[in-house]
Nucleic acid binder design. Structure first.
Lengths: 339, 339
DNA sequence: GTTAGCACTCAGTTTGAACGAGTGCTAACA
DNA sequence: TGTTAGCACTCGTTCAAACTGAGTGCTAAC
């Protein structure tokens, strides 16, 4: 469809525009890249490329800018051609500790690692876990008659809350309570626990406070279980890009990044390993000159998404590499956890 | 020093500038506020106020802007006069759950509450706790041969990490280990524990993994103990202020908010309950047109700081009120915790 | 002490000219 | 037939000059 030379010129334009954020003119191409033809010829080719929808002109005396269609072509090729060649990155493993970590911690570190490496905005989505069941409930003694109530689910999620119990309850007593609570609740779904405890009227006393604690944690868990959670990091990095030199635009972008709902709408609907959505494809006017790359991580029925948002003019190859690397680390981490 | 009318005019100017961010002219004063004299008279008074250092003129044909000295006068009066009149705010209590919470969670909620109410940037500093000692170590059973190691200090700080132990260890066995670990380490300072465990060579096996876990947590705690932690929230709110319409300035501001070191330098040196530092008084050029208000919270030897940063043109009264309200809630929370 | 009037100042905006990067077209060339 | 040099043309950008208007300071009268 596109002959060799057109394709090469288009690639040069994309490359240059990604680097400089300035519309690319015909002479720039001949100066910087060795095509072997004169600017006039480049102009003819560019004119064709524009007619084909791969280039756009901000105004008649400016250079050309890649269109969404051009990025799409570029990215599709990138993914088709280079998917296997993304190398391991040992350093990436190290951004998670060698100890196992809780899922939320891992997600947060992943988000940090992503935005540190890409200098853009990173997203991490942890999937909902509707079937979550309680595995353990345990009271850990704290000073001054308090205790930490810890709830663990079969999927390894952990939540805790501090309770006032009674200073007369020694560690063994707390452990006895823990065992019987675990016996009572273990294997139940958090929703069932919520229902079981909703019946209890609040009647004071240490027991009641413990049950209230269980209910609180069950509520938290249930909320978590029923909806996907999203971590965002580095949203302010958008200010580093000249396309967001306007504070109004930057604020619009940030407000999208703060709206869990809009983010989920963005992220949700995709099933392939790598998804790239460019400009309008995101169907959110506030970020219509951005691109979002997402990759999956996880194993079996437990998987989430890693994502990076930046200007449509982003270094796709490098960003995809970073994402797949971190995704692999996350997957390994969770496989280890499952094992 | 300042006669009644001058003082009133100065207050009007401050009030108007806080509202509008636009230099205030003499006619604006007569139009909006009922002083009972003509613009010409106001001009004379403003001229005097400028000579006294309370007003500044961005340029000769602009209105006047309050100087740092003016804000200082205003704020000092505010604090001297109104410190007792800050009311309770029941709603503020509710932003912390009725259950006791871990200190970090409380700090984070406080930061959130502050920036939600002030629409500026909030800071919460938790003080270092050099004398922190271990109270409890406990292993909570997790699915698939894992266990959550929980460490609690006498000050109520909690840290945990996931370990692979052995699937042959049942809850009772884990509890037995927990008890003996607690016996061994309880009452020791985290630094001592670090030293005790540094001697152990890593030799594999479940025991070793547990001890490695203890060491990891002790390291974390020690780091926390030796240095103050700062939570920042709502830094991006700075974009809402016209004085930060310039992206460069906004970036400079955000970079300060990300630098723990610079923040600590800002916050550190103060001993009174409320501290207000205006403009240059902050001695950081990036934020020389901001003000920082900090108030203490906590009881006895355990206290931290709540702070709000915004443009020097901020609603001081309201912001101080919000800060003191939240500070009171935090203090109550921690007193309850101690009791 | 207060005020009306007036000249003056100066940032911000508008206007228009010069500039220059870049294009499209045409004609010549290989 | 594809390539290239040349040239007219477009249009955003830049810069300076002119204009506008908000606001002041000063003076003289009340």
């Amino acid at each position: 469809m596109l002959d060799e030379r057109k394709r090469q010129i288009l690639d040069f334009i994309i490359q240059d525009y990604v680097d400089t954020a300035v519309p690319v003119g015909s002479r720039t191409i001949t100066r910087k890249y060795n095509v072997g033809v004169s600017p006039a010829t480049i102009r003819n080719e560019m004119s064709d490329l524009e007619a084909l929808g791969y280039l756009e002109q901000p105004h008649v005396s400016a250079g050309r800018v890649p269109s969404v269609k051009a990025y799409r072509l570029y990215v599709d090729d990138l993914i088709a051609g280079g998917a296997e060649s993304f190398p391991r990155d040992e350093e990436a493993r190290d951004c998670f500790s060698r100890f196992l970590v809780q899922q939320e911690d891992a997600a947060q570190s992943a988000a940090q690692a992503l935005c540190e490496r890409t200098r853009m905005t990173s997203l991490v989505m942890m999937p909902s876990q509707p079937g979550m069941r309680i595995a353990t409930l345990q009271l850990v003694p704290m000073p001054r008659g308090a205790a930490l109530l810890v709830m663990v689910t079969d999927s390894g999620m952990v939540r805790d809350t501090v309770l006032h119990v009674s200073s007369r309850l020694d560690p063994d007593a707390l452990y006895a309570i823990s065992r019987s609570m675990t016996e009572a609740f273990s294997g139940q779904s958090v929703q069932t626990v919520q229902r079981m405890l909703a019946a209890y009227a609040s009647q004071g006393g240490a027991e009641q406070r413990v049950l209230d604690g269980v209910r609180t944690l069950a509520d938290q868990m249930a909320r978590q279980a029923s909806e996907d959670t999203v971590f965002v990091d580095g949203a302010h990095n958008i200010l580093n890009f000249p396309e967001y030199a306007d504070v109004q635009k930057a604020r619009a972008f940030l407000s999208v990044m703060e709206s869990r709902k809009r983010l989920l709408d963005l992220i949700r609907e995709d099933s392939s390993f790598i998804t790239v959505r460019i400009g309008d494809e995101l169907s959110l006017p506030e970020i219509s000159d951005c691109s979002l790359i997402t990759v999956r991580f996880g194993v079996g029925d437990y998987h989430g998404l890693l994502g990076v948002i930046g200007p449509a003019r982003m270094p796709y190859r490098q960003t995809i590499r970073t994402l797949t690397t971190i995704s692999r680390s996350m997957t390994e981490l969770f496989s280890a956890q499952q094992a």
